[in-house]
Amino acid sequence: MSWGSPQAIVAHGGELDVHLLGWIKDLLDDLLGGLGDWGVIALAGAMILVIPVGLMVLYFSQRKRGGYDAAVD
């Protein structure tokens, strides 16, 4: 390892090392390899959607019951 490139400096709040990411992807391929590229994309995409969809469903169900009359500015 050399001085650490300027890119490397950002790792804590930013970008990870490209080789490390490659190795982590190899791990994921071993774990999820059967799913194929689009299968992993669909799985990760569904997990990403959990928070926004969950929040919207909860909010509108509570609002329907009259829970947030003052919620809208």
Binding site: D37, A44, I48
Partner: peptide, 12 residues
């Protein structure tokens, strides 16, 4: 979540 999503999306 996002990094693997992006990595596989890039391959696809």
């Amino acid at each position: 979540l996002i990094v693997p999503f992006a990595a596989y999306m890039l391959e696809a």
